[in-house]
Structure formats: structure tokens, C-alpha cells
Design a protein around this nucleic acid. Structure first.
Lengths: 340, 340
DNA sequence: CTGAAAGCGCTAACAG
DNA sequence: CTGTTAGCGCTTTCAG
């Protein structure tokens, strides 16, 4: 079925006794424009079909400078939030003829810089990035170079970029207020020791809610760079030291999962001993006993916005597009873990 | 920091007053071989560093026919099993200088064929595929064309390929025997209506165990192509009709998750009313009440084998490599859901 | 309407 | 040791 020998456009031209130019025009749908006879067009198309000719995308890219490849850099593709978003982005990208070159950054600044180089070398047409700290300069220079970049999940306040994020501050504010209303007084916030915008905003929301109600702050910042084993240890330690807590808000899904494991090991009752809310929803939280209240991100909307903005930029000259900062709303899914 | 203007190897040569060839040789580490003076080598390297020159990977690829890109096709990147494997593969690939072009096949044969075309057009150097049914011919022609392909999770018995799978039959056999030993008599197997090898093998193991103990078969095959909503409905319906069941083995993680939801909705007690075992472990199963016994796949080993085999083939001429069929063992993690 | 020819940036024979 | 040069396969300008 599939031919061994790779045909080039020149081969086709020879076989058809016409010039490569003509073949190229026909293939690129510029026949009308170039006033090529319908007869010829059909003959070319038919022959292309017959011999199963496929243009060499590499040569095309080298010539046109366009690769039809989007570079997707997420924190960790095995995280359910990121893999779900990636899945949807992929789908929409393929529909528009774009392929995805992807990688996980591990939130590692140096690794990410290397990866950006790799992507640049391969001349990806556009970037979708959930950036780690410290790559402002690299992103800036991409943007200034007129290359489409969309950040998501977090962004850099200092530089102007397209980005789509959620209303992090409001989301954690609302979650904490919910806990307060259900009678909690000593509410902890377990988060990452991260300066990334989304983490800082979640922290702000938590603090604002507590301040408005004159409650004590209990913030536990966990280092991102460790395995779940260690995260559980740190949470366990925190919970043991702070034995007066009556509620916890987890800043990410995997902190939530690790937290649940710690709580289980400590044999604490949810929500009696500890009310729980976690950022990011997924099946685990629904099926847990008791079910876990979660701040669900609008995954589909995020993916939709990200890819729409990017495709738009890809198709229109840079000058016509101004940057978009999209802030989407989360959905607080009330379950049994947060009501005393 | 990053330069706007793209430098070519010819520019460098001019600036250094030498020929592009020399620059190319130095850059490709063939200086010694070509007996280029250490002095010159250093001068070139220094200059390259200074001006921040990066070769154009596209041109390199067009010239050499190598892209240093691996095409990764999984069933669904948002599935925790596949995303975990993908994560590990990615990491190892990058370490060897390979990038990953990925896509989800949705188990859709036509879509996969298209995707294979796309990958071929982009001249990926090698393929890692968890194949849907019906792409034997395409895989064959790739393999026959001398292109490195490694299948995983499933394979095609009819064609010889490198692949890494798990001992599916034995795994489900052992799981079912476990259920039988703990007193279960009416054991259901909830699986997909799939002819893929891994599904068929899991079914075989189930049937063999039942036959050896002269127990009744209760197989429910669910169509792959529907959302989880519908899967839950089908499972609910099945459980309602078959109200004499005392155990279920789920053939995949998401069937397991859907099953748990159905069971919860029906208010059945695990393991009293129904003992449960599911293929594929993850955090949900450990934290569930009761915790769910799972057949854990050796994710790291799978990724390790897959990428090792592929890199090997990539680096050695096809003739020297014979195909490897790796069968890895699973780990039955006994938890509370399977002991009556 | 069609063809010749000039590159895109790189590699590698081949010739000094 | 180093330079010239011919492509890899495609697009596109410019001339018919």
C-alpha cells in the first residue's frame, strides 16, 4: 500500500511532463489564481492520488519558515489537570492542522530554558506554556520576536503576554469563607513554596478571608521538588504540630491527595476533625468517603481559550492582535468534606 | 540576550574567514577526524558561543534525513496510565536528545492512520505506539521500511514487532483465583468490547480461572466509544440485572472508576455485597473506602524498556537488531476490597 | 498558463 | 587541513 520510494515534486513533474512549479501551484490550491487549466489540475490531482505522493513537510518548513507545530510545555504531563488540558488542546490543534511537540518542565527553570531552545531550534510556530518561575526574559524575547505565545495556569505580572488563568484569589477566598460559614476557625492553607502567580493569588485569597474574619493564619509551604512520599511526611508533621486545626484548604490536587493520605494515616475524621477543600477536581474526590469539596477548574474552557487565542495569532499578522488576558471562573463543588 | 537575527553557518564562516565546511565539521565533532587544528576548533567554538549561534534543525533534518523526533501515539494522554508512561518516556528521550511529537489515538483506527501519515510526513525517526485495532498493515509497512517501531500495552500477534506488554492473562487469572479463594462464586468481568490483545488476554485469564473452578461466567463488554456517563449507566444496568454477583474484576482503570461510581449509586457494600479488583493502580484506589485491590502495571519498567529498545534501534542499523517481545509482570496489590 | 532557476540552511563528497 | 560545490525537496519570483 504505502510506497517505499519517496517521490519528490520533481518526479511528479517529470511523470506528468510538466514543471514542478505547476505541480506545486496545483497542490497549494493556487491553480485558479495562476489560471491553470482545470484539465491539468485534475490530471495532476489524479496522478498525485494514484502514486500516493506526500510532500516532504521538512522541506516545506525549511522553505516557508512554518512548521505547523505548536510547542506545549506543561508542568507535568502526568498530572491529571495538565494532561486533561493537553488532551483537549491537542484535539483542537490537530483539527487545524497543527501538531504538538510537548514536554514537561518539572517547574525547573533551567530545564525549561533548555527546552525553549530545543523548541526554537525546531522552529515551532507557537508556544503554549505553563511557565515555571524565572523565564520572564525568555518569554519576553519570544513575544518581542513576534512569536505567538500563550501562557496558562499562571502568568508573569511584569510582562505583557496572552494568557488564560482562573480567578485564583477569589476562588480560594470563597472556599475559605465557605469553611468559615460552616463553623471552622483554625483553617490551614497547604501550598507550595512557589512565587508563581497562581500560588500567590490562592494565598492572597486565603489570607484576605481570614483577615476579614480576624482568624489565625496557618500556612504550610511545601517545596515542589520532592516526591509524594516526602510531601506526605511534611503534611503529617504539620498536622501533628498544629493539632488545633479544624480545616484545610489544599492549593493543588496532588497536595490534596497527599494530604488525604496523611490524614488517613493519622486516623483523623473528615469533616469532624478536619474539614477539607482542595483545588482541582477529579474522580478521586467524588468517590472518596466522605466526598471531597473541590474547586474545579473549567478545563474545557481553558483549553478552548488557549488554543483559540494561539491559532488566531498564528493566522493573523502580529500587528493586528493585541494581547488577551483571560480570567476564567472556577466552580466550587460542595461535597461532604467541608460541612461540619 | 537572545538574538533577533538568525545566523547561518555561512555567516559564521564569513565572520571567521574560513569555509562553512570547516565550521560544520567542528560543530559536528568531526574536527579530529578531519585533522582540523585545535587552535581553529577553539576559535570556532568560542565564536559560536559568543554570537549564540544555533543550527537550524530543520535544515539539518532535511539534509540528514534524521529529525531526532520520536512519534508517541497513546490511546489517550489524559488517562493516568498513559500519561505516566508518557512522562517517563519523554524524560528518557530528552536525555538522549530526542523530542516527542505526541497524539492520542482515541483507539480510533481511521484517526490513527491519519496520524501515522502526519508523523511520516514530518519524518519522525521512530514510533512508540499503543495501537488501536486494524492498523497491522500500516505498522508492518513501517517496520518493513526499516523504521524503528515499538508497540506497548498491546501488540499484534500476526505481525512481528518489538513490543512491551504485561502478562495480562496471568494477571487476571491470579486476580480471579484470589477472589475465588476468598470465597467468591459469581465473579463478573467488566471489560471493553475490544479485540486488542491485552483485552483478549485479560479475558482469557478470567475464563481460565473460572473454568478450572467450574464457576459461571459473567462477562460484560462495554463499548469503548462513549463517555463515562454512559459507561456508568451500562454498568449499573448490568449490576441490576445480575443481582447474584459477589465479585467483579474490572479490565481497566476507568472501567473501575466508573464501576465504583455505579456501585456507590446502587448503595452496594464493598466487599460484603461485591468484592472488587481493578486493573491499573492509582491514588484513587488506595484512598478509597474500602481501599481497592488493584493489578498494578510496572509503569517505570514499561517506559524504560520501551525507550531503551527504541533508542537502541535508532542508533544501530536495522540489520543488527532482532525484534524483542518483552512481557513484564504486574503486581497484585491486595487491599480491602477483595477480601470477604 | 507554464517553466527556469534561485534559494531556505546544512552536510559531505571531492578536490586541492 | 580547508574550500568548492552539489544537493536534501519545496516554494516562488520572474520571464516567457
Amino acid at each position: 500500500m504505502i510506497l517505499k520510494k519517496k517521490l519528490s515534486i520533481v518526479d511528479l513533474a517529470k511523470q506528468l511532463n510538466i514543471s514542478p512549479t505547476t505541480v506545486s501551484f496545483v497542490l497549494n490550491g493556487r491553480a485558479k489564481e495562476k489560471r491553470i487549466s482545470d484539465d491539468l489540475v485534475e490530471r495532476v490531482l489524479k496522478h498525485v492520488e494514484e502514486v500516493g505522493y506526500k510532500p516532504n513537510a521538512l522541506a516545506q518548513s525549511l522553505r516557508t519558515g512554518k512548521t505547523k507545530i505548536i510547542g506545549l510545555m506543561v508542568e507535568d504531563i502526568s498530572d491529571p489537570f495538565f494532561s486533561s488540558v493537553a488532551r483537549l488542546i491537542e484535539e483542537k490543534a490537530y483539527k487545524s492542522g497543527y501538531k504538538i511537540l510537548y514536554c514537561s518542565t518539572d517547574n525547573n527553570t533551567e530545564k525549561t530554558k533548555d527546552l525553549l531552545d530545543v523548541f526554537r531550534d525546531r522552529q515551532v510556530d507557537g508556544y503554549i506554556i505553563s511557565p515555571p518561575e524565572g523565564i520572564e526574559d525568555e518569554v519576553s524575547s519570544l513575544v518581542n520576536g513576534g512569536i505567538p505565545v500563550v501562557l496558562f495556569d499562571r502568568y508573569f505580572a511584569e510582562i505583557t503576554t496572552d494568557h488564560v488563568v482562573i480567578n485564583n484569589e477569589e476562588s480560594s477566598y470563597n472556599a475559605v469563607v465557605g469553611l468559615i460559614n460552616s463553623g471552622c476557625k483554625e483553617i490551614a492553607f497547604i501550598t507550595l513554596d512557589s512565587l508563581q502567580s497562581q500560588m500567590q493569588d490562592r494565598l492572597k485569597g486565603y489570607e484576605r478571608a481570614l483577615n476579614e474574619h480576624s482568624l489565625n493564619h496557618h500556612v504550610k509551604e511545601i517545596s515542589f521538588f520532592q516526591d509524594s512520599e516526602n510531601i506526605i511526611k511534611h503534611i503529617t508533621n504539620f498536622l501533628t504540630r498544629k493539632d488545633n486545626l479544624d480545616a484545610i484548604l489544599f492549593a493543588t490536587n496532588y497536595l490534596g491527595v497527599s494530604g488525604l493520605k496523611a490524614i488517613k494515616a493519622l486516623d483523623l475524621k473528615i469533616p469532624e476533625d478536619l474539614a477539607i477543600i482542595s483545588f482541582d477536581d477529579y474522580s478521586l474526590f467524588e468517590l472518596h468517603s466522605p466526598s471531597i469539596t473541590a474547586i474545579a477548574q473549567p478545563i474545557e474552557e481553558i483549553a478552548e481559550k488557549v488554543i483559540t487565542i494561539l491559532l488566531n495569532k498564528l493566522n493573523l499578522p502580529a500587528k493586528y492582535k493585541k494581547n488577551q488576558a483571560i480570567v476564567l471562573s472556577t466552580n466550587l463543588i460542595l461535597r461532604n468534606s467541608s460541612v461540619k
